[in-house]
């Protein structure tokens, strides 16, 4: 094996064509991950709380919507958002935006269920006690329930974010220049080093994801919810 191909293209792997072109490579992977992680966290919280607070028809519609995003393969959702939204509704989402939208919708749908489960895991006495203190339902949620439920959810948030970092690699199908995409470009040009290039790329993702996982374990230990 000959890893000079990695050394020769190191800055392209890390930054893409930047500063002479748009930011790409591992830096773009990180940027996509951070934005999608935040967006999926917000969506997860909003929909998870909505799941916990709704009953009947609204609850079922919500479940159905979340179910759709949990059932569709990421690649398919990326295709739909990128190529079909403009044709069907005239909505143009750029490549990076597509990835963020697709990943945060899917991540958010999974997180919504974790948030819901976290809220449900608290004993009903908590709600009753809050009501007895004269708090309305919304106040009870904000002041009593969430502060206790959120720490329980931390590990599932971080696990979902690890999945999300890995899924940014699927941006490759619509030509977004993140790490996997620039790696295939180089592999395609150099022809004979796929083993070296993909081993290196795997290592970079491994560093990103295991750093996150380490944080998860540390946080989990702090809140005493067992290793993630």
């Amino acid at each position: 094996m000959d890893f000079t191909v990695v050394a020769d293209n190191f800055s392209y792997f890390m930054l893409g064509a930047w500063p002479d072109g748009p930011l790409g490579g591992a830096a773009l992977t990180l940027a996509l991950s951070v934005v999608s992680a935040l967006a999926s966290g917000v969506l997860g919280l909003v929909f998870g709380i909505a799941l916990a607070m709704t009953r009947g028809a609204a609850h079922n519609v919500l479940l159905l919507g979340l179910g759709f995003f949990r059932a569709i393969p990421v690649i398919m959702l990326i295709f739909w958002t990128y190529f079909l939204l403009p044709i069907l509704f005239g909505i143009d989402v750029p490549g990076t935006g597509t990835v963020v939208v697709a990943l945060s919708l899917i991540g958010g749908s999974y997180l919504a269920h974790s948030v819901h489960a976290g809220i449900l895991s608290l004993p009903p006495g908590q709600w009753q006690a809050a009501a007895a203190l004269g708090l309305r339902r919304g106040q009870a949620l904000r002041l009593v329930i969430l502060p206790q439920a959120l720490p329980i959810m931390v590990p599932s948030f971080i696990n979902q974010w690890v999945a999300l970092v890995k899924d940014t690699s699927l941006a490759y199908v619509i030509g977004v220049g993140e790490l996997s995409f620039v790696a295939t470009q180089v592999s395609n040009r150099e022809m004979v080093y796929p083993t070296e290039i993909f081993l290196f790329v795997a290592l970079v993702y491994f560093i990103f994801c295991s750093t996150l996982e380490l944080c998860a374990n540390r946080v989990a230990r702090r809140f005493g919810t067992g290793a993630g």
Binding site: V162, K166, S180, P194, I197, L199, V201, A202, Y205, F206
Partner: peptide
């Protein structure tokens, strides 16, 4: 577990098919 859970499936597939 650590290696296979913390790297993207796409990269793993490329590795097995083209690299390995």
């Amino acid at each position: 577990l650590s290696v296979f859970r913390n790297t993207p499936l796409l990269v793993q597939l490329f590795f097995w098919y083209f690299g390995a």
